[in-house]
Design a protein around this nucleic acid. Structure first.
Lengths: 154, 154
DNA sequence: AGTAAGACAACTAAATTACTAGGGATTCAC
DNA sequence: GTGAATCCCTAGTAATTTAGTTGTCTTACT
């Protein structure tokens, strides 16, 4: 049930872009540096987001990435769907085929549906703008540092 | 964000055991046959559930598996935690370390926390008994068949 | 004793994840 | 119009996880 690092990195990059929204494109080195990850890897993720029309690019010197729309209009759902492929916890309750041929004989289906509904609620209702605002406000209250949250624990 | 087949198979097996609760042990061949999967694979899952004290076993002829407690007292959370290892969507919001050292610098953390809270709500509040009851009632209303929900879609 | 069951360990094939490498195409600044 | 900055794209790869299979051993009912 883990969220992939793709999703975490990509989502944070989108939040970075939301913070910079309206101020021109942000380059890959800056975005990757913000999270301390390789440019090559983040680039792949951003390309998916471009395909999905969430970000736009400006090539050449002084180029970079920027959001195609107001972050207030951009749901986390849309971003994660592009990064993760799908936000369905099991294929048979995804948006594409909410009906499974053995639905009537699957004892766990009611649980899966309930869980998926709650997850979708959060993902659809949370906008990138909210996350960006939370983050900038929190940073304003102190403790500035890099946008990293990927340590290993035991 | 997918639930593994481990979890799906294991959870359904537990629901099967809940339906049979109080009627003596159910053998591996019966449980595996119910889902149309191999005995060897399901056995591994059941062993995890035994380690976690969710199921108990009776060896020898006429033996099998049974729940250690009333299914009404058994949450889906507990079952999935044993099967999945953890039900945390990202390590840094798991039950073990709800605090990440870069928590204050992670722009996506508020989302992760909200999502995890909603997921835990569902998993903690849903009991195996509820799922078992739903299933038996639905079967009583018709359309009996095997407990399979694992087709591939496109 | 024979057989029906679970216990356990080890191995494996396939898929996924998380990258890395490297060359190509644009565009800006000078 | 050259050079540097930048995105574009493909391919490869190592590590991990997933989803099993196989085989031997132990236990206990009949």
């Amino acid at each position: 049930m883990k969220l992939s690092t793709r999703s975490r990195y990509g989502l944070k990059a989108v939040i970075d872009l939301a913070i910079a929204y309206g101020t021109g494109p942000v380059s890959l080195p800056v975005l990757a540096g913000s999270q301390g990850i390789s440019e090559g890897y983040l680039e792949q993720l951003l390309r998916e987001l471009k395909k999905g029309n969430v970000v736009d690019t400006v090539r050449g010197a002084q180029g970079g990435y920027e959001l195609t729309c107001d972050p207030a209009e951009l749901s986390v759902q849309r971003v994660l769907n592009l990064l993760e492929g799908s936000t369905a916890i099991v294929d048979c309750v995804g948006t594409l085929h909410h009906n499974c041929t053995s639905a009537c004989s699957c004892s766990a289906r009611p649980l899966f549906l309930k869980l998926q509904t709650r997850i979708n609620d959060v993902l659809e209702c949370t906008t990138i703008r909210e996350l960006a605002d939370d983050y900038t406000q929190q940073k304003a209250r102190g403790i500035p540092s890099r946008n990293i949250c990927d340590q290993k624990f035991e």
